[in-house]
Simulated assay, not measured.
Amino acid sequence: MSQIKYIFLALFSLGLVIIAVILQQVGYQGISFLPCPLCILQRIGYLGIAIFCFLAASFNPLRKLFHAMAALSAAYGLSVAGRQVWLLSHPETSCGIDPLEIWINQFQLVQGLPWLFKADGICSAKLPAILGLQLPEWSLLWFTFFLLVLAVTFFKKLPK
């Protein structure tokens, strides 16, 4: 995959995190989208994709390694988003405050960047749909996109 494609994937992934932060801070249809623990873990997946794609674009000798790490970040995010979509369709399995929230909110990174990493929401909360899909469903869709692109392009010959 070319350097410009890695940069595009990285910027697109960062753009999705920015959209999530905007929905958290500004809201949609008058409702603030407070991130739950699974939302925060998905943000980490998107940031992983972005970081590893930027590294793949920057360091040609280690491009395959960073490409694989970006694909693993996408697979990780896909599994977390899949779990949250499952929780949305089975709200009775949620007990309200997730113990994962307490664990996530104790990290130093959360203390330094609470607007990005602090978990305040409930994972099974039904929020307004955006273009017909809940936010975790959109996330599942985008992680699938990233994983497919990264998996298909992994075995292609590197450009010189």
Rank of each mutant, 00 (worst) to 15 (best):
residue 2 S to H: 12
residue 2 S to W: 14
residue 3 Q to T: 15
residue 4 I to E: 15
residue 14 L to G: 11
residue 15 G to C: 14
residue 17 V to C: 10
residue 20 A to F: 04
residue 22 I to F: 14
residue 23 L to F: 15
residue 23 L to P: 04
residue 25 Q to S: 13
residue 31 I to Q: 13
residue 31 I to L: 10
residue 32 S to L: 12
residue 32 S to V: 05
residue 32 S to N: 09
residue 33 F to T: 01
residue 33 F to V: 04
residue 35 P to A: 15
residue 38 L to D: 02
residue 40 I to C: 09
residue 50 A to G: 13
residue 53 C to I: 01
residue 56 A to T: 00
residue 60 N to I: 07
residue 60 N to L: 11
residue 70 A to N: 11
residue 72 L to Y: 05
residue 72 L to P: 08
residue 73 S to K: 01
residue 78 L to C: 07
residue 81 A to M: 01
residue 82 G to I: 06
residue 83 R to C: 01
residue 85 V to D: 06
residue 86 W to V: 00
residue 86 W to I: 02
residue 86 W to Y: 14
residue 92 E to K: 11
residue 97 I to F: 10
residue 100 L to M: 14
residue 103 W to T: 11
residue 104 I to V: 14
residue 109 L to E: 01
residue 109 L to G: 10
residue 110 V to W: 09
residue 112 G to P: 00
residue 112 G to R: 03
residue 113 L to Y: 06
residue 113 L to R: 01
residue 114 P to I: 15
residue 115 W to C: 03
residue 116 L to A: 06
residue 120 D to Y: 03
residue 120 D to R: 07
residue 122 I to Y: 12
residue 125 A to R: 05
residue 130 I to A: 06
residue 131 L to A: 15
residue 134 Q to N: 13
residue 135 L to H: 13
residue 140 L to A: 13
residue 141 L to T: 15
residue 145 F to Y: 10
residue 145 F to S: 05
residue 146 F to E: 05
residue 146 F to K: 04
residue 147 L to G: 12
residue 149 V to R: 00
residue 151 A to W: 13
residue 154 F to N: 05
residue 155 F to C: 07
residue 155 F to R: 10
residue 155 F to K: 08
residue 156 K to S: 10
residue 157 K to P: 03
